[in-house]
């Protein structure tokens, strides 16, 4: 299976996962939430830093969640700080309109991140017919560019990342984010093999 075919498959699966996440969020916030996936690509983990800085220059908020089981890896969901604040304001409406991230806001982002990341990974694992365990996600609000760089250092054990660019629409607010699914070279190949077998 070449990379293009892999991307087509993973796009299908991620789209289902993202759709589930949007559904859950819609029920939770009692308003229509749409999440689109305009782009999916595979990048080398070491070039994530370059990719991220080409896409957006401002500091951001990222949620990371480790998973283990049939596959072992890490998911990373990234929003710029402005997008995160817009997301919260869209959810809260006028009652808690804010211009920066507070502890209560971060708790909400935690929950949203958990929903999106778990939904996507659950679809993948359901497809390959295995089992995954998830750690609870961590939310980091960047006040220094070094935070993300330090996180990338931890990713040394992973080789490949599936980058899912996503656009969320809530109450006329559009928020753009990035979901990274990072796997080791072995797990990435395992995933390819399982896909090949399934086909």
């Amino acid at each position: 299976m070449n990379e293009d075919n892999f991307i087509n498959f993973i796009r299908e699966i991620i789209n289902i996962g993202i759709g589930e996440a949007a559904n859950s969020l819609s029920k939770l916030v009692n308003t229509r939430v749409i999440i689109k996936v305009p782009d999916i690509r595979i990048v080398e983990t070491r070039s994530i830093d370059e990719y991220v800085w080409n896409e957006f220059s401002s500091l951001g908020v990222y949620m990371s969640q480790d998973f283990s089981g049939q596959l072992k890896g890490k998911t990373l969901l990234f929003y710029t700080e402005e997008c995160s604040v817009s997301l919260l304001n869209a959810i809260y409406g006028g009652t808690m309109k804010t211009s920066n991230l507070t502890e209560v806001g971060i708790a909400t982002l935690h929950e949203i991140g958990n929903i999106i990341m778990v939904s996507c990974m659950t679809q993948i694992i359901d497809f390959i017919g295995g089992k995954l365990s998830f750690d609870l996600p961590n939310v980091t609000v960047e006040v220094s560019e070094t935070y993300f760089k330090n996180l990338l250092k931890e990713l040394g054990k992973f080789d490949k990342a599936v980058v899912v660019k996503n656009e969320m629409s809530i109450k006329d607010t559009d928020i753009q984010g990035y979901l990274f699914v990072m796997l080791s070279f072995e797990d990435f190949n395992l995933l390819l093999d399982i896909f090949r077998e399934k086909i």
Binding site: L28, V29, I91, Y92, M96, V104, A107, T108, H110, E111, N114, V118, T122, K131, L132, S133, F134, D135, L136, P137
Partner: peptide, 12 residues
Amino acid sequence: ESGIPFLLSPLL
């Protein structure tokens, strides 16, 4: 049943 962790935030 599924081993999925959940987070429930106070505002939601």
